[in-house]
Amino acid sequence: MNLKFKKPSKETQMAMAKVASGEDNQDYQKLAEEKLADIVNHKFAKLVNGGNSAILSAMNSIDGAILIPDQGAWNGFKQIANFLKKDLITVKTNQGLIDLDYLNESIISSSNDNMIDLDDENNKSALFLTSFAAYTAEQNIKEISDFVHENNMILVEDASGAIGDWENKLANGNYSDIIIGSTGSPKIVNVEDGGFITTNDNSLFDKSKLLLKTNKASNITACGIYNELDFAQENLEKSIDSCLYLKEKIKNETDFEVFHKDKRGINVIIKTDDPKSLSYKLRQEFVLDSHGMITKCPNYNRLKEKAVALEIKNLDISCLSHENLDSIVDAVRKYE
């Protein structure tokens, strides 16, 4: 089993090297922003130096409360909301997936407590979520978007793991008011640095003008994003197909229970009574040039369950052959 940690494409590495050496002096900031905005169906885009900078800029532009899932999202949501002294509301989920009944309960309760004003156009609250709950199950973004907008709120989607969705269900500006993401390693747009924020409402950028300027991505990073966007769909499609294959094989050929087994995602999470032991054993099986692909749960960024996540998203798509995937299943089976 020859597994490799995800890296930028050779084309992207060469393009970034030319900018770094001064051989290419083209300004890639605008080019990359226009290309990104077009891909996600938004009018405006800004590149920043990291995913947390994108979250910070997005949250700073929100005047109302911040709602986040109770699990399966990104812990930076909570940390940055607290840093900005925003009212923070945690929404109960179905193992990371937004449930409209639970969301409605949170909105009603928070409205009664005067944390959310559903009638104030100038003080809108926002739901922050990730395209894939725990990276393992796609959110129903269109359904969530319709509900959020009916309640005079803003939807912010962290699409770090979903840029290039060929089905246009995720990372689609027709549904999400703001799309944010990281282009660090090992994301779908994998430049090992940087992040982005996109929207149709340019006033949101005005509210965070200083942050966007201070945290602006370098031209080397912008060049990398510009080039790596060409490979986003292939990276995403191969990762999703591989995870669906693994979910099916593990479900049918082992005794492990797979969370969200029928949902598109870019990792696979399996239930275990002893996540500490299983995660240790699997780390010995899967060695990726000093990088890892195993996450132990309970973990807010994944699931608050006794489980282990196989981070297929961390693998270079060149090694996602059926032979290697079958070897992953064989390794998991050893520890039933």
Rank of each mutant, 00 (worst) to 15 (best):
K18Y: 10
K251L: 06
S160W: 11
E285P: 08
T199P: 09
L84F: 13
N168D: 13
L210S: 14
N168W: 13
N252V: 07
E237G: 00
D101T: 10
A133R: 11
T183Y: 02
Y102I: 00
C297G: 15
A81E: 05
Q95R: 11
R302G: 08
Q13D: 03
A54E: 00
I179N: 06
S61K: 08
L36N: 03
L36Y: 07
N75W: 12
V191D: 00
K35T: 04
L103G: 06
N299S: 12
R283A: 04
Q233F: 11
N219P: 09
L56R: 15
L3G: 03
D241L: 10
G195A: 03
E34M: 02
I240M: 10
L170Y: 11
R283G: 12
I144R: 04
I294M: 12
Y245N: 00
G292R: 12
N151L: 07
G51Y: 04
G181E: 02
E121D: 14
G224S: 07
D119Q: 11
I317K: 11
L103K: 06
L56S: 01
K30S: 14
I80T: 08
D101C: 03
T254N: 03
L204Y: 13
M293I: 07
A217W: 05
K276T: 14
K43C: 01
D262N: 13
L97N: 05
K4H: 00
A222T: 01
K263P: 02
E253H: 10
N324C: 07
L47H: 11
K261N: 14
K187A: 04
V91D: 08
G184S: 14
L211F: 11
S203G: 00
A126I: 02
D146P: 03
F205Q: 04
C223Y: 04
S9W: 08
A307K: 05
D165N: 10
S111P: 07
D117H: 10
D289H: 10
A37V: 03
L31H: 08
P298R: 12
S327N: 14
I269L: 12
R302I: 15
P8I: 03
E150M: 08
N227K: 14
N112H: 15
E143A: 12
G72V: 09
G161I: 03
D289I: 00
G96T: 04
I225M: 05
I154D: 01
M16V: 05
S57T: 06
G181C: 06
F77R: 06
K313W: 14
R283E: 15
E285Q: 15
V258S: 04
L278A: 07
G224M: 09
H291R: 12
A54T: 01
N122P: 07
P275Y: 13
I294K: 11
Y102M: 05
E323Q: 15
N299P: 06
K43G: 08
N122A: 07
N202Y: 15
G51P: 06
E23Y: 12
R333D: 13
I188H: 06
K261I: 08
